[in-house]
Design a protein around this nucleic acid. Structure first.
Lengths: 214, 214, 214, 214
DNA sequence: AATGAATGAGGATTCATTCAT
DNA sequence: CATGAATGAATCCTCATTCAT
């Protein structure tokens, strides 16, 4: 009984929370739309009108959710790599072999690429159009990510998991580049799950293509 | 008499040839500039003003060399893959092993990527902005190129040069995607020659990264 | 006394009054803010967002206190010259000399200019942006004010307080214009009180700048 | 004969000059229009469309003559005070009495105010909307101008042309302010020439309004 | 009594393109 | 050959205003 009273009293306390939540949710939808349009048409090829049309709202209404097209791109990119670094840190810090780690890293990289392809394609293809000042933070994250990735290779070479002829830096770049291209051709391969794709890629990287008689 | 006639006759005959040559040459410079600007800023991010500025001429003067920005992009893309298919055809028709052929194909693919990076980056990154009608021809070339590439893999699997677990289609796409990313990070690797890079890539693809005690 | 009854009876009677008072008071604050923003940024350079920000409320909340930006400007202007005409009428109707009256008029004009500078600057500088229909009333007040001012000059010339070479109309305009400019540079003269400033201005007007040996 | 040849040779040399001249001339017309519109509607109340409409050209064509609305305002303001400082310098450097100089200064100030009223009204009323960076130069010119003006007053007080009770700084500001207001009410006084107006103003300032029996 | 959400209209600016010379 | 001049369309963004709550 008192509970009922408490509940009705809570409302005025709760409301602002709910409102902010609703705003956040709508903002997410708006950024989703931006990601979709940027991915499809490229940042400069996309107009705010395109985004608004996708949402079925007025162009000017977009600006209630972001302050500029730049900011929208930034938000898309940030969401595109959210958690990436953290997850890779966990993998690197783990106690598996270098092979396990590289497989883990490839899975980590590819899965979001496939689950939020619009965000990821935008991140990969349009980040360079983000103005210098907004790009800084993202560049730092990339640098950190790359360093972690390379670390796995370096360690693997040291522990003789990987061949000593591997140039860790260029290999890292190539491997990441390869993963990054996935969302651009994945559409044609719906028969493979993201995990399968990641495995294929990892196998390819680790084993090579040559036939090995056994 | 004949002399005079010849002279006056020759002029209108010869000059146009020379003029056309000069025109062609200047046009090449213009398309070079377009390629450079497209590569740097993206098709939609680039303005005809940027191209003109790079050449030190007036914007309107560009239209003497191409009819529209679209056409400029088309010319850049066409030049970006000129000879690609033909050279790959020759490689496929050759009588080396599948391994040799795949190495040859990778070299073939990478060298231009590096020698005319502006053209190639534009081709890889901006082709999708080319209007449907102009894109047709290029798409056909790509399809043919991909088919040739895949053929090598298919043959290689058949002749047991490549492991049977290889999915030829997706492998082809990944391999090409990997080659295509080269011009985007090559700048950092001036210590490697294009040929060395191609070898590294081919080795990686063929041998894999795992350490092989022997 | 039947306190209880009175109290409960009064409430519904009094509250609306109190409410209106509170509304009026808040409205005054809102118009104050509008005056400040208009004075600083100009009518067209000011946005309703600026006003709301100064008050710490939402833009849309402003419309509870005025129906449009136009109306806000009108309210500011009206408040800016409230009492002006009446006080000048009193001065003109008084029985001092023309010199006293012109001094009184200048004081009358300058003091509000300084005590409510935002209102006054807005009135002087932004009135012209008020739409025709709203401007009518204010224009009439100005005309009346000017006429009263000129009357002092005319009378002063007739009674030989002022030199006969004075063109009363243009002099009136110049004198008023001079007073109007005060709030635009007064900030730099905090060492002078409004009354001193008015005196300086009046002295200048009456005596002139030339040195008079005596 | 040689003359003819020379003449035809000159053409290519002369042309560029003529073209630039034509551009300059047209630019002047454009800035004239901008001044007119700014003066009438205020900087923020004026749209580039208004300016274009006055010229009978397309909005976008304006940008061939100035890079931004800001720049247009700057050009108008600069033109509005062109020569002001220099002419006042000449007056101050002259060898007349302080009275002559102050008369000269008032004439100098008022005449352009009347001959190019749009420029001047814009300069007086809209300069404050010019972004900080563009305003610097103009502010410096104003400071220099004011200093020169004040110098006349200081000298005049020293040489006992002006009464010792004069506060030179505030008087300077008031006098200039008074001159500046002229173009805002001059329209009503077409019976007076600029010179007459300047004389009236100077007389007023020097002699004062009081009747002097003599 | 106030606000969140949304919008239409307008505004500055860019840009590809044209055309006379 | 090349350009100066001009323009229409598009684009990003701001803003006054509305209205349900």
């Amino acid at each position: 009984m008192p509970d009922g009273a408490v509940k009705t009293e809570k409302k005025p306390v709760k409301k602002p929370v709910k409102k902010k939540d609703k705003y956040r949710q709508r903002q997410t939808e708006v950024i989703d739309a931006a990601a979709a349009v940027f991915a499809k048409k490229g940042y400069h090829g996309a107009s705010t009108g395109d985004i608004a049309a996708l949402l079925g709202i007025a162009q000017s209404s977009l600006y209630y959710y972001f302050k500029s097209k730049d900011e929208a791109l930034e938000k898309v990119c940030l969401h595109g790599i959210k958690g990436y670094v953290e997850r890779l840190q966990a993998i690197v810090a783990g106690d598996g072999s270098a092979e396990d780690k590289i497989r883990g890293a490839i899975h980590n990289h590819i899965e979001p690429v496939i689950f939020i392809p619009d965000y990821f394609r935008t991140f990969v293809g349009e980040l360079r159009y983000l103005p210098e000042n907004r790009r800084q933070k993202l560049n730092n994250m990339i640098a950190e990510y790359n360093a972690l990735f390379e670390q796995i290779l370096v360690d693997g070479i040291a522990e003789k998991t990987f061949t000593g002829s591997l140039d860790s830096h260029s290999t890292m770049l190539m491997l990441i580049a390869q993963c990054n291209t996935v969302p651009f051709w994945f559409g044609q391969f719906e028969q493979y799950s993201p995990a399968q794709l990641a495995d294929m890629l990892a196998d390819n990287f680790l084993q090579g293509a040559l036939w090995r008689p056994n």
